[in-house]
C-alpha cells in the first residue's frame, strides 16, 4: 500500500500535469484533525505552558518560567520565603490513586460473576440483560451521583435501614471517602461489565468441562481456566474504569464534601474559587501523566503480544 503511494508520489513529481485527483480521504480527515487540534491538542500544550508560568495578581496567570505551580504540590512557602513541607496535596494525590484502584477492583469483583451469569442465558435474554447494564450509563452522571446523595444522606433509605439495627437516628453516611467510592463504583460499573462480558461470552465451554474432567473443582477452574482466558476483557474493563476514575470530579465534590478532595476536584477548585491557574495546570499535567503511563503500559503490552503472535 505504501509502495503504490510512493510511486504515485514519484510520478506526480515527474510529470507536472498529473491526472490523479486529490485523495478525498485526506479531505475527510481534515475536519477531525482541525477540531481535535484546536479544541484538544493545542489547549493541552497551553496547559503545560501555564503550569510553568507565574500566578497572576488577580487570578489567571502571567507568562514566564516559574516552577511554583509544581513546588506547591509538596511545599508551602512561608512568610519569609522558607519552604515548608505540606502533605495535604500529596494526600489528595494518594487518595485519587487509591480510590480509583479500589473502584476498579470493586467493579471487577461485581462484573465477573454477573457477566458469567449473563453469558449463560439464552440469546434474547442476553441482549435484554446487556441492555439493562448499559442503560444507566446513558443517564445523566450528575443525577446518578445525586441518587446516592439521597440514599446515603440524612433521613435517606440506607441510614433509616441501619437504624432498625440500632444505628443512631439522624445518621448521615455522606461526606467521606466511602461515600465517594460508592458513587464511583455505581457510575463506572457498566464500563467494566461490557468488556468482561464480551470476553466471557467467547469462552469455549469445553475447556471448562475439560478442567472438570481433570478433577479441577469450580474454584480451581475459575482461577486457572476462566480468569486467564478472559484476561483481555478484564484488562480493557480495568482501563475503561481506572482512567476516568482517576479524573473523577463530581463524585468527590458531591459525595466527599469540601475536604475529601481528589485530583479532579482539586483542579476544578483552582479554576473556580481557588483561582490559581498555574497550580491547577500543574495538577492537570500530573493527572495527564498518570493516565498516559497507564495507556502506554497498555499499548506496550498490546505491541508485545502482536510481536509474539
Amino acid at each position: 500500500m505504501s509502495d503504490t503511494a510512493h510511486t504515485a508520489h514519484a510520478s506526480a513529481g515527474a510529470s507536472p500535469a498529473r491526472r490523479r485527483p486529490l485523495n478525498l480521504a485526506y479531505l475527510g480527515l481534515l475536519p477531525s484533525w482541525l477540531i481535535m487540534g484546536f479544541a484538544l491538542l493545542l489547549p493541552i500544550l497551553i496547559v503545560a505552558a501555564v503550569s510553568v508560568s507565574t500566578r497572576g495578581a488577580y487570578g489567571g496567570f502571567e507568562w514566564g518560567f516559574d516552577l511554583t505551580g509544581y513546588s506547591q504540590i509538596l511545599f508551602n512557602e512561608g512568610w519569609e520565603g522558607e519552604m515548608e513541607f505540606t502533605p495535604q496535596y500529596l494526600i489528595i494525590i494518594l487518595r485519587t490513586i487509591v480510590l480509583a484502584a479500589l473502584t476498579t477492583l470493586l467493579c471487577l469483583v461485581l462484573a465477573v460473576p454477573v457477566s458469567y451469569f449473563i453469558a449463560q442465558q439464552s440469546s434474547s435474554r442476553k441482549a435484554l440483560l446487556v441492555y439493562l447494564v448499559t442503560l444507566p450509563f446513558w443517564m445523566s452522571l450528575i443525577l446518578r451521583v445525586y441518587a446516592w446523595m439521597i440514599i446515603l444522606g440524612k433521613d435517606g433509605p440506607l441510614p433509616r435501614f441501619l437504624e432498625v439495627f440500632g444505628a443512631p437516628s439522624g445518621l448521615s453516611l455522606m461526606y467521606n471517602d466511602g461515600a465517594t467510592l460508592a458513587a464511583m463504583v455505581y457510575t463506572y460499573i457498566p464500563l467494566m461489565v461490557l468488556p468482561v462480558f464480551a470476553s466471557i461470552e467467547k469462552l469455549d465451554g469445553t475447556l471448562i468441562e475439560a478442567a472438570h474432567d481433570l478433577y479441577g473443582n469450580r474454584w480451581v477452574t475459575l482461577r486457572r481456566v476462566i480468569l486467564p482466558l478472559t484476561a483481555p476483557g478484564i484488562i480493557s474493563g480495568a482501563i475503561l474504569v481506572f482512567v476516568p476514575a482517576l479524573g473523577a470530579v463530581l463524585e468527590p465534590i458531591l459525595m466527599g464534601g469540601g475536604k475529601q478532595m481528589m485530583m479532579g476536584s482539586l483542579i476544578q477548585l483552582q479554576f473556580g474559587g481557588g483561582r490559581n491557574w498555574p497550580f491547577g495546570s500543574a495538577i492537570a499535567v500530573m493527572l495527564l501523566v498518570f493516565v498516559m503511563i497507564v495507556l502506554i503500559i497498555l499499548a506496550l503490552r498490546a505491541a508485545r503480544k502482536e510481536a509474539a503472535a
Binding site: M1, S2, T4, A5, A8, N23, L24, A25, Y26, G28, L29, S32, W33, M36, L40, L41, P43, I44, I46, V47, V243, P244, L246, G247, V249, G264, I267, Q268, F271, G280, S281, A284, L287, L288, V291, L295
Partner: peptide, 28 residues
C-alpha cells in the same frame, strides 16, 4: 479511503476525548 497514510494516528486522534480525563480538557 485508499492509500491513506496516518490512518492509525487519525483514528487515535478522533478517539482522544475518550482517553483523556475530561477535567483536563475542560480547563485546557
Amino acid at each position: 479511503g485508499k492509500n491513506v497514510r496516518f490512518r492509525k494516528v487519525s483514528e487515535t486522534v478522533v478517539n482522544l476525548p475518550l482517553l483523556l480525563p475530561e477535567i483536563v480538557l475542560a480547563v485546557a
